[in-house]
Design a protein around this nucleic acid. Structure first.
Length: 765
DNA sequence: AAAGTACGGGG
DNA sequence: GTGTACGTACTTT
């Protein structure tokens, strides 16, 4: 008998049951065995269920069939169903598929969970859990004790050996390129392998894998390019390539696909998962809040999804898995797919309920001494506090019409599935945030930040998921109730701050920007405490701005645009939203100059000082434009990045994007919706559309860039920044043309607090 | 003028 | 395997 103390590394099904990889405290990987017999459930007429039983028995499949009683959340009652227990976990998906093909119209439950998930549920386990394990001589697990909790802030992780693989000397997507050298990093050295000699390449790689036996293979474009290339080469030359640690398995590849998410198309390249070893592609990892391994490990522990999977899927899948785990624990049926229609609503109700988050247009202009106050995790907090869940909204037992505006009722008898899943997550995130504040800046704090970001991703999608028609536990009425509470809470906060004499300059879903003449920073803590107390939802001070500029719409200088502003806090920190430098489609050089301009303005503490800085910004623009005109700017810094929303041939207009996408297509680069392109504008006015822009990957320094086009883009970005000073693009151009900037009088905008008859102009030196 | 196309958020 | 909705900015036709 063997004892192993270590961390659960990977779990998957194979012919003999389950493979459980454990890494012990010395860093040694153990391939252990166990098994699980998961069940799915079928609901339907007696005759249909009988037919399913007959079919399964006749096929001699390894199943155990029985009658079971389980609760359906949406029907709100216990059902009598057929339980199909699959004795060999590897066959779970195929046996389910067979039944579903046989009787597609029946209702299925617990059918789309993986064997690993069932195993984790049954054993109270999760990925990377620390355990004490006893096995027999053949590696079968006899006893397993979990010595870890996924709710702990402090936990140890296994010592991991890491190897990374990338193509030498380039950051661009290699499907846009056609050759390269392979760079392999291990802990103590870097190998550069020439791809022109595939046999030697494979031999060396083979040796490195054997010698270092990495737990984690980190790649750049390994999913889309490097791993498929290597596997293809190994097949062509009939050579062995031990990418997997489990010698019986071939790497699991998954087709590339495009899907819509966050209102845009995302391209997921093919993925290559390994067995007994993790492969994570830096460029194919889903990282909502810019976290990396520490965030991914936290997600794996919390969601119960394996590391390689959680690294690649959206947080929606993660929150869905957490909800499924809660349901499993409570013996609630987990719907196979969502088929709930919205409850009937009259037209009038639709208008009321469909409003979403509350937004006011900001009061345009440059404002001094503005406080920004934000509700903390507003929607998740509302869901947890007010017990909002698909089964608690308009439940049959309660008629309290408590939801503001829309009058839905919420169950007071039973804790909802979503609140129950959410509450510990909200609490853990707060503990991480508080913990990070107490820690000194350093690696530990960075780990806390990443984990907190990862949980934030779960919380944000949890709200969105309630309104998503295909979510397992989604229900649009729950979504509406959340936003209705959100609006009520925000309005309440607005009234409270106004009672204290503040003006609300801007208001956006869970944030308010407020100011009062001669307000003092000491006023905010009691104000926040009062709002928190009266609304029941915690609110915090994001900061007090020395100045903040709310920008108008381009077409109407008096009409503000939500979430388009820039400002400087008391501590000197700059915050910008919606302006060019925040956008992914702005050239890096334009972003950099806009940032420099804001840096120049950020030394100002008042409106007056802001205006005083304007001539310096003009000087900056003049210098940068001179560099541009002298063709001194590196073309990489002028590259525009765009995400394609359709196939290159499907574009109807000759936009630069379409032109570039087709150029790449002609060069054999197959682009899909959701993939990005990068290009430089070479001659925007050219007759021949193809001469207008050039993909960065097909560019070199011999191609010039379109000076006037980039000058125009720069001036536009600068006009955004100087608009609050009352200066438009034309004035900027005029001033830039004069050297040096001469004393200058222009009409500055009125102060929000200014008397009716203000002085009309100011002089800046 | 109308239609087509893309971005935002988080830090 | 997959969060929605929508306002804004800009280009092409």
């Amino acid at each position: 008998m063997n004892r192993i103390n270590g961390w659960i590394f990977d779990v998957y099904a194979d012919e003999q049951g389950l493979v459980v990889w454990v890494i012990d405290t010395a860093g040694v990987a153990h391939q252990l065995r166990d098994t699980v017999a998961p069940s799915f459930f079928v609901f339907g007429s007696h005759a249909d269920l009988h037919a399913v039983c007959v079919m399964l028995s006749a096929a001699h499949l390894p199943v155990r069939l029985r009658r079971a009683e389980r609760h359906d959340l949406f029907l709100r009652r216990d059902l009598t169903l057929l339980e199909v227990q699959v004795l060999r976990p590897l066959l779970f998906a195929s046996i389910f598929a067979r039944v579903r093909t046989f009787r597609p119209a029946l209702t299925y439950y617990n059918a789309d969970l993986s064997p690993a998930q069932f195993y984790y549920f049954e054993k109270g386990l999760f990925p990377l859990a620390y355990c004490e394990i006893q096995t027999n001589a053949a590696g079968w697990i006899n006893a397993l004790e979990v010595k870890d909790s996924c709710w702990d802030l402090e936990y140890r992780l296994p010592p991991l050996r890491t190897m990374s693989v990338r193509l030498a000397g380039q950051a661009a997507n290699p499907t846009h390129e056609f050759r390269g050298e392979l760079e392999i990093h291990t802990e103590d050295r870097v190998c550069v392998l020439d791809t022109s000699d595939p046999r030697e390449l494979l031999r060396t790689l083979n040796r490195l894998l054997q010698k270092y036996d990495p737990d984690l293979l980190i790649s750049e474009y390994g999913d889309s390019f490097i791993l498929p290339q290597l596997i293809q080469l190994a097949n062509r030359y009939g050579m062995h390539l031990p990418l997997n640690r489990d010698p019986k398995q071939a790497p699991l590849s998954r087709q590339a696909y495009s899907y819509a998410s966050y209102g845009r198309i995302v391209y997921r390249s093919a993925s290559h998962l390994l067995f007994g070893r993790w492969h994570i592609d830096l460029h194919n990892a889903f990282r909502m809040g810019d976290y990396w391994l520490d965030g991914i490990f936290e997600l794996a522990r919390l969601t119960g999804l394996n590391v390689q999977k959680v690294a690649r899927t959206s947080t929606g899948t993660g929150i869905s898995a957490i909800e499924a785990a809660t349901a499993y624990r409570r013996k609630i049926l987990i719907p196979y797919y969502k088929r709930e229609a919205e409850d009937f609503k009259s037209a009038g109700e639709l208008i009321l309920t469909d409003k979403g988050g509350l937004t006011y247009r900001p009061i345009v202009g440059l404002h001094e001494n503005v406080a920004e106050i934000d509700f903390v995790s507003m929607y998740p907090f509302i869901m947890a506090k007010f017990n909002i869940s698909p089964e608690t909204i308009n439940c049959p037992c309660c008629h309290n019409s408590v939801v503001p505006d829309i009058g839905y009722s919420i169950c007071t008898h039973q804790r909802g599935l979503i609140p129950e899943s959410l509450e510990p997550l909200v609490a853990k995130r707060i503990r991480y945030k508080l913990g990070a504040k107490e820690l000194a800046a350093g690696p530990r704090q960075e780990i806390y930040r990443q984990r907190s970001q990862a949980i934030k991703g779960l919380l944000v999608t949890c709200f969105g998921y309630t309104g998503y028609k295909n979510a397992r536990f989604g229900k649009i009425e729950a979504h509406e109730a959340i936003t209705a509470y959100g609006r009520a809470v925000l309005i309440q906060a607005k009234e409270i701050v106004e009672d204290h004499g503040f003006d609300v300059l801007h208001l956006l879903i869970d944030s308010l920007w407020i100011k009062k003449r001669n307000s003092h920073d000491d006023e905010y803590p009691p104000l926040l405490a009062e709002i928190t107390e009266k609304t029941g939802v915690p609110i915090a001070l994001e900061g007090v701005y020395d100045w903040v500029a709310f920008l108008p719409a381009r077409e109407h200088e008096k009409i503000g645009v939500p979430n388009r502003y820039f400002g400087v806090f008391r501590n000197g920190a700059i915050k910008t939203r919606g302006i060019e430098l925040r956008r992914g489609d702005t050239a890096p050089w334009i972003k950099a100059v806009q940032q420099q301009a804001i840096d120049v303005l950020s030394v100002a503490h008042t409106r007056k000082e802001f205006f005083d800085q304007v001539p310096q910004v003009i000087d900056l623009i003049r210098e940068r434009l001179a560099e541009l005109r002298a063709q001194q700017v590196d073309y990489h810094d002028l590259a525009l990045t765009y995400r394609l929303t359709r196939d290159p041939q499907a574009y109807r207009h000759n936009t630069l994007n379409a032109v570039v996408a087709r150029q790449l297509s002609q060069r054999g680069v197959h682009l899909h919706p959701g993939e990005s392109i990068r290009y430089v504008i070479t001659d925007a006015q050219a007759r021949d559309p193809h001469a207008r822009a050039r993909p960065v990957d097909l560019m070199d320094a011999s191609y010039g860039y379109d000076v006037e086009k980039y000058a125009e883009l720069l001036l536009r970005a600068m006009a955004t920044i100087l608009q609050p000073a009352g200066i438009d693009q034309e004035q900027i151009e005029q001033k830039v043309a004069q050297t040096p900037t001469q004393p200058w009088v222009w009409q500055i905008p009125l102060d929000w607090f200014a008397p009716v008859n203000p002085c009309k102009s100011a002089k800046a030196d």
